[in-house]
Amino acid sequence: MASAPQQASLPLFYNALEPLSSGAHAAFKLRQIDSAPFLVNQHAIPVTVDEFIHVQRSMPIVFTAGDEPVPIALMGLNEGVNVFIDDEGKLSDPSTYVPAYVRRYPFMLARLTPDAQELSLCFDSTADVIGAFEEGEPLFEDGKPTAIVQNILQFNEMFEEAGARTGNFMRELRELGLLMEGEISIQPEGAPQPFVYRGFQMVNEEKLNELRGDQLRKIQKNGMLPLLYAHLFSLQLMPQLFDRQNRAGKVPLPPLAS
């Protein structure tokens, strides 16, 4: 039987990983998912470049701090705040785009051993939506994966491919030197001082506009340019996100006047 993948550093939301097997999980079923309680207190979600255009309509897109930044969608401006999810883990507005990182849970592709060449379909064994239940969609029939498993596998393969494209995008972004430390200042009415948010990176629009002609042609040709502007346009949603937090009573105490 396949061994469990390395668990030293599990991705966000995952508490354990187990390879899906027709032998060990022949009776397993997948319950219908209508909520995501694990999202309630999560304010930032990783996204791929394939999703930028969809995400920027409702959430700011920024990049994590550090030498190996990744793009994230902000579902709140403060730790532990998600203004798109209610206390039961359901979307406040069903039309809100849900990042693929969330939609793939509790499944993901992972290497079973550090030197494995192929990725295997695994699942979080602590998730309460998969197990030997009486209700739900069967994952195996006659020892073979059902259509639902095939669809899950295909979705996760597409996610990995999008992740590779995102990695290439981020390498190009760093090579062009377009990232800078981010800072957003929001001045609510009646507050003595603005709320200032830092701890992320963003594209330096001034440097973007100063790119050489050959550099600009390259990012136009490889599709980076609309993605960069999707990110920049999405930053205009920061005040709206702050306002949603404010209406929900989830904004920290106002800063004191100096």
Rank of each mutant, 00 (worst) to 15 (best):
F52R: 00
F52V: 04
I53V: 12
H54I: 00
H54F: 01
S58H: 09
M59T: 05
M59K: 15
M59H: 10
P60K: 01
I61Q: 05
V62E: 10
V62I: 15
G66T: 08
D67H: 10
V70N: 04
I72K: 06
A73G: 08
A73C: 07
M75A: 11
M75V: 09
G76I: 03
N78R: 14
E79H: 10
G80K: 05
G80A: 01
G80Y: 02
V83C: 09
V83S: 13
F84R: 00
I85P: 01
I85S: 00
I85G: 00
D86R: 01
D87M: 04
D87N: 04
E88W: 05
E88I: 03
K90H: 06
L91C: 09
S92L: 15
S92V: 15
D93N: 15
P94F: 05
P94Y: 06
P94M: 08
S95G: 03
T96K: 10
T96H: 14
Y97M: 13
P99V: 13
P99M: 13
A100D: 00
R103F: 06
R104G: 13
Y105F: 13
P106F: 03
P106Y: 03
P106H: 05
L109F: 14
L109E: 07
A110Y: 07
R111W: 07
L112Q: 06
P114A: 09
D115C: 02
A116Q: 14
Q117L: 15
Q117H: 12
L119Q: 08
C122F: 12
F123M: 07
T126G: 00
T126D: 07
D128G: 11
V129L: 03
V129F: 12
G131Q: 01
G131F: 08
A132K: 13
A132T: 06
F133C: 10
E137L: 12
P138R: 09
P138C: 11
P138N: 09
F140S: 11
F140D: 06
G143M: 08
P145V: 04
P145E: 05
T146Y: 05
A147V: 15
A147M: 15
I148L: 11
I148G: 00
V149Q: 04
N151W: 05
I152N: 01
Q154S: 13
N156W: 12
E157Y: 08
E157L: 14
E160L: 09
E160C: 08
E160G: 04
A162I: 04
R165C: 02
T166L: 02
T166E: 01
G167H: 03
N168H: 03
N168F: 00
M170K: 00
M170R: 00
M170D: 01
R171T: 09
R171F: 02
E172D: 15
E172N: 15
L173T: 12
R174I: 15
E175Q: 15
E175W: 11
G177R: 06
G177E: 03
L178K: 03
L178D: 04
L178Y: 06
L178Q: 08
L179W: 03
L179A: 10
L179R: 03
M180H: 07
